[in-house]
C-alpha cells in the first residue's frame, strides 16, 4: 500500500553568515492514511522545517533536495498552482502562534468562510454556515454570536481551536500540526489533544504532530519519529518507543520527563546542547552528549536501521541498550557527562 505521505531522503540547507546550515539531512518518513505520526525533537532538530516543507511554506533561500510524495505525486517538483490547490482540501496545517496566523482585522467567521469559498465555491451565506459549523465542531461556545468576533476577543486556547477549524474546514486528508499546544496551559493542551483525537476518529484524517514533548504524544500518536540534528534517529510504533527506546537520545528525552506516576528520583537531563549544524559532523551527531558513545560513534555516522519490525534506530549500540528504562535510577543509561558546548 502506498503511504499517504512519503518523504524520501529530504535534505534542506540554508545559507547563513557562518556557512551552510544543514537543517534537515536525509530524512525519510511515511504517514499512512488515517495514521497519527508524532515527530519529536528539540528546537533546531529540523522537525518544523520538515513540516513547513511539506506545506511548501519554506522561504526561497533554502536548498531542498529529496522527495516529498503525497499520494504518489512529488510535491517538490509539482507545478506551484497545482500544489497550492492541494493545500486546504488535501493538506492543512495548524501553527503554534495563533495570533500571528489569524488576521486581526477580519472576523474569524469571515476568515474561515474565505477559505471555504476559495476551495469549494458556493455562496457567501453557505460558506458562513460552514464556518459556524466548524467552530461548533472544535468546541467554540455560542457560535452564532462569535463568528462575528475578531481574533483578539478569544482566549489563547480558543484561538488555537479556531486555527484547527480553519485547517479542517475543507476536510483535509492530512493535518500537519506544528507545536500547536506548546504555548498553552496543560489543561488547554489536554482539551486540544482530546479534540484532535476525536476529529481524527470522526473524519479519518492522518495527522503529523510536531512537538518537543514526548509526553503529549503518548495518548495521541500511533507511531513516533525522533529527530536529532536534522536526522531521524529512531522511529517506531508509539508503545514500543516509550516502552523500549533503542536510541540513547530517545531514552534521554523520556528520562527528562517528570512523571506523576513514578516520582522521586532525580531527572536525568541530557547534558549539553545541539551541535553546530554549520560544521561537518563526521560521526553520530549525538555522540558528544551520549553516555554510550565509543570511538566508533565519533568516526562513522550510524544510519537508521531496522532492529525489529517497524522499529528502527540510528545507533551502533542499539542492540546493547537495555530493553526498557532501567528500573534502577543509579544506573542511568545516559550518563550525565558534563559537556561544555557552544
Amino acid at each position: 500500500m502506498t503511504p499517504l505521505l512519503d518523504i524520501t531522503d529530504l535534505s534542506i540547507r540554508f545559507r547563513t553568515d557562518d556557512g551552510e546550515l544543514r537543517a534537515v539531512d536525509g530524512v525519510s518518513l511515511q504517514v499512512a492514511e488515517g495514521e497519527v505520526l508524532g515527530v519529536v525533537g528539540e528546537s533546531g532538530s529540523g522537525k518544523s522545517v520538515t513540516a513547513l516543507t511539506v506545506m511548501g511554506l519554506l522561504a526561497g533561500d533554502a536548498a531542498v533536495t529529496g522527495q516529498v510524495r503525497y499520494r504518489g505525486a512529488d510535491l517538490l517538483t509539482m507545478d506551484p498552482t497545482k500544489r497550492r490547490a492541494l493545500c486546504g482540501p488535501e493538506l492543512a496545517m495548524v501553527y503554534q502562534d495563533s495570533m500571528a496566523v489569524l488576521n486581526p482585522t477580519m472576523t474569524v467567521g469571515r476568515q474561515i468562510a474565505m477559505v471555504v469559498r476559495h476551495h469549494r465555491g458556493g455562496t457567501k451565506k453557505a460558506a458562513m454556515e460552514r464556518a459556524a459549523e466548524m467552530l461548533d465542531l472544535v468546541g467554540i461556545p455560542d457560535v452564532r454570536a462569535r463568528v462575528a468576533d475578531y481574533p483578539h476577543q478569544f482566549s489563547g486556547g480558543q484561538r488555537q481551536r479556531i486555527l484547527i477549524a480553519l485547517a479542517l474546514c475543507c476536510e483535509p486528508r492530512l493535518l500537519i500540526a506544528d507545536e500547536p499546544t506548546t504555548a498553552l496551559d496543560v489543561t488547554v493542551q489536554a482539551q486540544i489533544v482530546e479534540l484532535v483525537r476525536k476529529l481524527r476518529s470522526e473524519l479519518g484524517m492522518a495527522v503529523v504532530w510536531v512537538t518537543h514533548d514526548l509526553g503529549v504524544l503518548a495518548g495521541l500518536a500511533d507511531s513516533v519519529a525522533v529527530m536529532y540534528a536534522g536526522r531521524v534517529v529512531e522511529r517506531g510504533p508509539v508503545d514500543t518507543i516509550y516502552a523500549g527506546p533503542r536510541h540513547p537520545y530517545t531514552e534521554g528525552l523520556l528520562r527528562s520527563l517528570p512523571r506523576l506516576d513514578a516520582a522521586g528520583e532525580r531527572l536525568t537531563a541530557i547534558p549539553g546542547g545541539l551541535p553546530d549544524l554549520t560544521q561537518p559532523i563526521p560521526g553520530c551527531a549525538f555522540s558528544p552528549r551520549c553516555g554510550w558513545s565509543t570511538e566508533h560513534c565519533t568516526e562513522e555516522r550510524p544510519d537508521l536501521h531496522e532492529i525489529e519490525t517497524l522499529h528502527a534506530s540510528a545507533c551502533f549500540r542499539a542492540a546493547e541498550l537495555p530493553a526498557g528504562l532501567p528500573a534502577d535510577p543509579d544506573e542511568p543509561a545516559v550518563r550525565p557527562v558534563e559537556v561544555m558546548h557552544r
Binding site: 496551559d185 489536554a190 482530546e194 514526548l214 509526553g215 503518548a218 495518548g219 516502552a243 512523571r259
Partner: peptide
C-alpha cells in the same frame, strides 16, 4: 485533580485508557 489529569503520562497504553477530568468552559 483536573490539573493533574491534564498532565500526560508518558506511557501510551495507560494514557489512552485514562479517564480524564476535563474542564468544560472557559476560565
Amino acid at each position: 485533580a483536573a490539573l493533574l489529569s491534564a498532565v500526560p503520562l508518558p506511557d501510551p497504553p495507560r494514557e489512552r485508557a485514562r479517564t480524564r477530568l476535563v474542564l468544560s468552559g472557559e476560565l
